[in-house]
Design a protein around this nucleic acid. Structure first.
Lengths: 240, 240
DNA sequence: AGTTCACATTGGCATAGACCAATTGTGTTG
DNA sequence: CAACACAATTGGTCTATGCCAATGTGAACT
């Protein structure tokens, strides 16, 4: 461990940089020593080792599986969050996207959804809940609310894959502009279950409101992306 | 504490929801019981209380000051990350922005910066390091690299405030489009020192590459925003 | 009245140890 | 040879405790 450090730097942070050096250049998937081994090697408690490793996991540098071990994580996936769909974007990077529908129902809008979509509370909305996967790994949990009923959406969605394509081609709903809100959040039990991540793992939560050319809301979506596996890119061109 | 919970839910998570209920409706700034008091009240160890509170702090729900206490945090600031400047955007929301210049030098480009700006390693670049404040609170740490030398930038910047305004009006550099990459990161010692946050606090790190109308790089910036105090908004209009 | 200093309080960091849960390898059994 | 049972290993959670660092308070002293 380094000796010439700024005073006040916590020991777990030194250990963190130590482990970072340890894994530099290693291939993703390579197992690193166990927590107990690291604690012994660096003369610290397992608690301290866990804090260091927890942060490296949160940053996407390491992954860990209970009963198996801690390993070097694969690099983050870059997601260009434009009008393009999740699927198209992934494919353009040579990645194999997939989507699993967890639920598709017509329900009464709760107050939050009603406000966003400009409806009255209780008005019928279509709720589509999906898990987004890349290379077979679940990376995002997405719940979309669409105004009204969309008959046969499930089968249409199965055929086309992309929600925006189905909305445009089948239902004549064209998205003209979107507004995304991006913030950080921490994984709760549901995120843990659906995404296979650890409690408290950082998430990038995106709320999207899509409108058609007349400004009428078409879609209100909440997406929770794994913060350790994702980064977003947005491009903006000047009007002038 | 709740009794009818999903099996396998950690105790610290129950405590977290408990505290969330405790602070619902309280004004920002209100002090909550001390960690030791909560540990006693809920029959847990202080370690567990700290884990629950740490996550609430990371989510921007609580804040804490050593020696003082733990308190309800003010709501997040929403930042519309467009071509508009930080200052203009804050002002448009009725907030008082400020900027503190930490450093302004001409240096030789390191390899990373050279790649982004399309220069050779060692070519002169102007490095501008700033802290961004809103309502007197430091919320972001920003380092910008600009190709070449920009004489008298410091005084011009002091007059205009906005970097983009100075670049356009004084140096004739007009930003035509930008590409932002947003990802999560965790605060290290330097972020802690500059932003007054806790070790390991979540950050929203944005890398921006700005180009002029000819596609020539104008600016390469790394910004670290406090993830507990910020959310980003981006609007995209369809071309068609 | 103002300043200084000691002390109690509160959060920050770290230790040591215990038990649980998931995984994996091993050996036994059918 | 396949299937199952079991034990070892490894990460996940929690307790109990100690000391440090920053803050605020109040007494003591100019």
């Amino acid at each position: 461990m380094p000796t010439d450090v700024a005073p006040g730097t916590p020991k777990y942070y030194l250990l963190k940089t130590e482990v970072l050096g340890l894994i530099a250049g290693l291939k993703p998937g390579t197992l690193i020593p166990t927590e107990r081994a690291l604690a012994g090697k660096y003369g610290t408690s397992r608690t301290t080792v866990r804090q260091a490793i927890s942060e490296l996991v949160a940053e996407g540098k390491l992954g860990r599986i209970q009963g198996h071990g801690t390993f070097v994580a694969p690099p983050k996936v870059t997601h260009v969050r434009q009008l393009t769909s999740f699927s198209d974007d992934a494919r353009s990077q040579g990645l194999r996207p997939d989507s699993r529908v967890l639920g598709l129902d017509v329900i009464g809008a709760d107050s939050g959804v009603a406000v966003q979509l400009g409806l009255e509370q209780g008005d019928p909305v279509t709720r589509l809940e999906r898990i987004r996967l890349i290379e077979g790994e679940p990376l995002a949990h997405e719940v979309a609310w669409l105004p009204g009923r969309l008959p046969r959406l499930k089968s249409n969605l199965a055929k086309a894959g992309s929600l925006y394509a189905v909305l445009a081609d089948v239902y004549g709903l064209r998205v003209a502009d979107v507004e995304d809100t991006v913030e950080t959040a921490l994984a709760g039990p549901e995120d843990v279950r659906l995404l296979g991540i650890g409690m408290g793992a950082p998430l990038l939560v995106v709320h999207r409101l899509a409108r058609d050319a007349n400004g009428a809301p078409v879609e209100w979506t909440r997406s929770a992306f794994r913060g350790d596996r994702f980064r977003f890119v947005s491009r903006v061109k000047s009007g002038g």
